[in-house]
């Protein structure tokens, strides 16, 4: 019953599973977005909840001195904080509420544009559907079963929670005399060679040698010298810095 039908001989294989979400712009450029799943989002929400609770608690204590005026202002405050906290932060702060900021997330439209007022209002009003029947049950199930990890509010508003691009630190390459690769390398392979040089510090010595020895025979060198050779190629690819 659970068996899949056998693939045709010349059928294309299903694409491998990845956490990237490609958006194609009208100019034909692929923008890879990385949708964020339930776990970082739950933590971001918990942080936001804590901040809201703290702010409301402090203000309520202050407002308690003011009698009826305090009760009135408090209820206005409760309304503003519970309904507008997320919306205002998302629209005015590039899709990031404080919790999302801490977790490195942001909200964008499905096509990668910044989120607007209507989308943000819809996704935050529908929070109350996601909360049903208790503690985000529907939202969590939807988030776990959707390929782009959307909760119901995201589905309705056409929004996506993605990881922000973090600034990249310039990696340090091991010192080597730069050489030209003896064969042409595709972009992917160039990246792998560069990655090999950049990540050498994190790998164990034996593993580095093992990796380099894969390419020893195409490089026409003895296996022990392959590491230096690959580092030289990486230097050459990187160019003068």
């Amino acid at each position: 019953m659970l068996e899949r039908p056998a693939l045709q001989r010349n059928a294309t294989l299903p694409p491998p599973l990845d956490t990237r979400y490609q958006v194609e712009t009208p100019e034909g450029i692929d923008l890879p977005l990385r949708p964020a799943g339930l776990m970082p989002r739950a933590l971001a929400f918990a942080i936001d909840l804590g901040i809201r609770g703290l702010v409301l608690g402090l203000l309520f204590i202050i407002l308690a001195f003011f009698g009826e005026l305090g009760i009135g202002l408090g209820s206005i405050l409760l309304f503003v904080v519970s309904w507008w906290y997320m919306v205002l932060f998302e629209v005015l702060n590039q899709g990031r509420s404080p919790g999302k900021q801490i977790m490195g997330l942001r909200v964008v439209q499905d096509d990668g544009r910044p989120i607007g007022w209507s989308a943000s209002l819809i996704r935050n009003l529908l929070r109350f559907v996601d909360m049903l029947p208790f503690g985000y049950t529907f939202g969590a199930i939807s988030c776990l079963q959707h390929p782009a990890f959307k909760r119901l509010g995201d589905l309705a508003a056409g929004t996506l929670v993605v990881y922000r691009e973090q600034p990249v630190k310039r990696p340090a390459l091991p010192l080597a005399q730069s050489i030209r690769p003896p064969f042409t390398l595709s972009l992917n392979e160039q990246r792998a060679v560069l990655g090999f040089a950049e990540r050498q510090a994190e790998l164990s010595e034996a593993r580095v040698n093992e990796l380099a020895s894969i390419l020893a025979s195409p490089l026409n060198v003895q296996a022990p010298k392959a590491v230096a050779e690959l580092n030289g190629i990486a230097r050459g690819l990187l160019g003068p810095t």
């Binding site: 064969f183 390398l185 992917n188 392979e189 990246r191 792998a192 990655g195 090999f196 990540r199 994190e202 790998l203 593993r207 990796l211 894969i214 390419l215 025979s217 195409p218």
Partner: peptide, 19 residues
């Protein structure tokens, strides 16, 4: 990350292509 599987994968394909 520990064993650089992604690099191994590309290196093996490269060797296959070159050989």
């Amino acid at each position: 990350i520990l064993e650089a599987w992604d690099i191994e994968l590309v290196f093996r394909r490269l060797r296959q292509r070159l050989s």
